[in-house]
Simulated assay, not measured.
Amino acid sequence: MTTAKTKQKILQTFLDLLSEHDYEDVSLPLIADKAKVKLSEMRSAFGSKLDLVAAFAESVDKAVLDERDEDMHDQPPRDRLFDVLMSRIDALEANKDAVRALHRAARKDPSLALEFNRLEMRSQKWMLIAAGIDISGLKAGIVAQGLSVAFARVVRVWLDEDDEGMPRTMARLDRELDNGTQFMKRLNGIEGIAKGMRSFLKKASSGRRRRRGRGEDDADHETGYSGEEPVGA
């Protein structure tokens, strides 16, 4: 069984290789060779490069969750989310070139972009939890998808920014969260309309059932049929 230390060494080797090579040129045998592990160990640790990307995303998630600022709990949700997403950028910083390679690969391969998006949505659900934003059901998926797209736009700005203060990155995140706030207002409005429609349809359906029931009773009374066999039959 592959140890946690070996898994971490393989993952870091993968990220180091991405800083120098395109994603498609980084093969599993190459990773195993550079990490100085057997292919059997490689197979036991990670079954594919996508598994390695998922492990990287999970490591970033954990870093953000561990560094969550508890003093932000009394701040507005938007400010808490801004803080969490900037923490995510900070957690990505050590592997910025690897992130650049992953973004480049996603732009070239739509199917790979979909796989990366799936992983990013899972991460963004945790970012919402870290920010204390509780969303469930279908709405959670919609919001996580929107946040994934918004964060990808922020990352693109960050990848091209050299200023350590990240003014352009923060400005873009501000703009994306402003757009997200407007989107949430519209989504909540649509959700309210949908709930009203469901309630209306439920009441209408219940009313039709009651009317059908009364109509059948009236018909039985008029024909003398009660649903039971006549006495003496």
Rank of each mutant, 00 (worst) to 15 (best):
D160Y: 14
W158S: 05
A150N: 05
V149L: 09
A150E: 04
V149F: 11
V154E: 01
D174A: 07
T169V: 09
A171P: 02
F151N: 04
L147V: 03
L147W: 04
L173M: 08
L173Y: 03
L159N: 07
A150S: 11
Q145K: 13
A171N: 09
L173R: 05
T169Q: 05
M170E: 14
D160T: 11
D162L: 10
A152K: 00
V154T: 08
L147C: 04
D163I: 09
L147N: 04
R168Y: 15
Q145M: 09
E164D: 15
V155E: 12
A171G: 09
A152T: 02
L159Q: 09
V155F: 05
R172S: 01
A171M: 08
R156I: 07
R153S: 05
S148A: 13
G146N: 05
M166H: 15
D174G: 02
P167F: 13
R156Q: 14
V155R: 01
P167G: 13
R168C: 13
W158L: 07
S148M: 06
Q145G: 13
D160H: 14
G146S: 03
A171I: 04
A171V: 11
R172T: 03
A152Q: 00
T169D: 08
T169H: 06
Q145A: 15
G146Y: 05
D163C: 09
E161D: 08
W158Y: 10
L173D: 01
D160R: 14
R172M: 08
S148Y: 09
D162W: 08
D160I: 06
R156L: 05
M166P: 10
R153W: 02
T169N: 05
V155A: 10
R156E: 15
E164G: 07
A152D: 06
W158M: 02
M170Y: 07
A150W: 03
V154I: 10
A171F: 13
R153E: 11
R156F: 11
L159A: 05
R153C: 03
R168F: 15
A152P: 00
A150G: 04
L173E: 07
G165L: 15
R168A: 15
M170R: 15
V154R: 02
R153N: 09
R156V: 11
D160S: 14
V154L: 06
P167A: 14
M166W: 15
E164M: 12
R153A: 03
D160C: 11
L147S: 07
E164C: 10
V155W: 01
W158F: 10
L147E: 10
V157I: 11
D162G: 09
M170P: 06
Q145W: 10
Q145H: 13
S148F: 06
V157S: 00
A150M: 01
F151T: 01
V157F: 05
D174E: 12
E164I: 10
P167H: 12
V157E: 04
M170L: 13
T169W: 10
L147G: 01
Q145Y: 14
D163W: 06
F151G: 00
E164Y: 11
R153H: 04
L159P: 01
R156D: 14
V157T: 03
V149M: 10
R172N: 01
L173G: 02
G165D: 15
D174K: 00
R168V: 14
A152V: 00
V155P: 00
E164P: 03
D174L: 00
R172E: 09
R168W: 14
L173Q: 03
L159I: 10
R172Q: 05
F151P: 01
D160V: 13
R156M: 12
